[in-house]
Design a protein around this nucleic acid. Structure first.
Lengths: 126, 126, 126, 126
DNA sequence: GTGGTCTAGACCACA
DNA sequence: GTGGTCTAGACCACA
């Protein structure tokens, strides 16, 4: 089941997308597993079916899931798309924060040690 | 002088804010230095004065600059605010990307080595 | 026996149609050969009889097979229909991709060489 | 101006997408050129603004255009995305038709000569 | 019952 | 004025 935050600034359709990607990336959902139908999921998380449809369409266009009229939606048998998406996203986020640090005049060492610090904090927190 | 990129998706007011912060953080602008007036800067970079005003107000609220009615704006004598802002921002960006990687099932080692890789790429590129 | 791919986005009735056409075109099924009954085939490939019926009806309409009430269906004695269908389909697919390339500003030479490249790739792959 | 076919089976949002891509690929629209606003285009082609929005969003996600709140939408300064999309699309269409011909028992020579024939027909037609 | 498209209309952020 | 999100509801194809 997905956890939607209705107060977050992140669009609902993106939250759905990300959580499904995460479930697949972590193996909770596996290739060819069935996803809840658009209407079912919409009911479950009290959201408009159009919004779920939008998330599913986007995931299909990216090759993460496959949707078929009359039959439903399921995880793509091929996981390569999702791997590529994650690496691409994380790389661009890293690039962004590194650029930010450079603009703040931070040395390579400083950004490196800040990263290590935050990584440890996050690791122990969980 | 600031470089505004109209083709960027980042809001104009944020671009102004960030560039002023960056000028201060890297020592190009120093404590108590005068900033151009809202109207002057708006004219210089061909932008709506409201947009510049919004950037200045935000910077003042954060304690980065000080505005005095009738006299103009100058860099805050105290640089601690801007340091705090950068550290806070960078930390939250790092936390975000680390969380993203965790949701993708990446190990601590993997995210660490991806960070190193991207950092080296960015460093050599410049 | 037909191979139905439930993970494909192509409708099931079309998969059945195409495979029967392919069996005939390649000589695996010959003129006047009997086809399994709608119910038999539906059972064999675990599919709704309506879906098989739809495929058979469409094939009959096109003159590829002949169905006789109470006796079943068999491959049309005349193979010209299926030849025409394939040529028509392939031509229209070729026309479509050529139009697409034209809209992208590709020269005749470029589309020609791209076709050759892909054709060689596919040929060696099999 | 775009030419929308309301009777076509192809979704309206896709028609918009394709035509904008084509205008860019053929140089009618150039990097950084402004596109009509979502509402303006919707009015021009008598279509719901949501449908135009959907096309624009999709184009932005693919890196073909850039959209900015409050400022409008324009052709991405970088044309590499659109080149990649076209090559990928055309290749997959070619692959599809070649596979189809193979299933029909066509030899490499036959599909090759059919392609040449259709290409010439299309070329002289225009 | 599935997925998918489209319209109509409200509402928000940015300039 | 821009772009962008979301809901509500109609309608279609496929199984």
């Amino acid at each position: 089941m997905l956890h939607i935050d209705y107060t977050a600034s992140q669009p609902l359709h993106q939250q759905i997308e990300e959580q499904i990607c995460s479930l697949i990336a972590t193996g909770m959902l596996r290739p060819n597993d069935w996803l809840p139908s658009v209407r079912q999921l919409a009911t479950d998380i009290s959201i408009n079916p159009n919004t779920v449809q939008r998330a599913y369409s986007s995931l299909e266009e990216k090759g993460v899931i496959v949707s078929v009229k009359g039959r439903g939606s399921f995880v793509s048998p091929d996981l390569s798309a999702i791997d590529r998406i994650y690496t691409k996203n994380i790389d661009s986020m890293l690039r962004e924060v590194i650029t930010k640090a450079a603009l703040a005049g931070w040395s390579k060492d400083r950004i490196y040690s800040e990263f290590s610090k935050v990584l440890e904090e996050e690791a122990t927190q969980k």
